[in-house]
């Protein structure tokens, strides 16, 4: 029971670690290039989740000022990690876009996006 509450208290971090491993496994083992990109996205999400969790204060409010500039009463969530993750998401999107466009080019060149088939085609080309 104690273990269960311990895990539940840190569920964000456990989730982030699980997603990270799932993503890494997909990137490293899956022969389909598209799924590799998906795996990378899962990994990125896990890091974002982790970083946002670092800045979370339990019971804290969103650090947003009202229309009149008034100080926030009570605890508020650390806005810095959230702001940084916004940048991180932009980076992730642009990398995904670039990777997908490369995959289209690879498909045009080789006629497949399975890594093992591409490798076969390349080794045939090299030998014959």
């Amino acid at each position: 029971m104690e273990l269960l509450t311990m895990i539940l208290d840190r569920i964000n971090y456990v989730g982030a670690a699980t997603l990270f491993v799932i993503g890494l496994y997909t990137v490293l083992t899956h022969p389909n290039l598209l799924k590799k990109v998906i795996g990378l996205n899962i990994m990125e999400t896990s890091v974002f989740l982790f970083m946002v969790s670092v800045g979370y204060v339990s019971g804290g409010k969103a650090p947003i000022l009202g229309t009149v500039k008034e100080p926030i009463v009570g605890a508020y969530v650390n806005p810095l990690p959230t702001a940084m993750i916004l940048t991180g998401i932009v980076v992730a999107v642009s990398i995904t876009a670039y990777a997908l466009s490369l995959i289209i080019k690879i498909y045009e060149a080789y006629g497949t996006i399975e890594l093992d088939e591409i490798m076969e085609a390349r080794s045939e080309q090299a030998n014959g």
């Binding site: 890494l24 990137v27 290039l33 590799k36 990378l40 990994m43 990125e44 890091v47 980076v91 990398i95 670039y98 990777a99 490369l102 995959i103 690879i106």
Partner: peptide, 12 residues
Amino acid sequence: FKYLMLNTLASI
């Protein structure tokens, strides 16, 4: 593509 995958893994 290979460079991009490994590079992004490294960045993450």
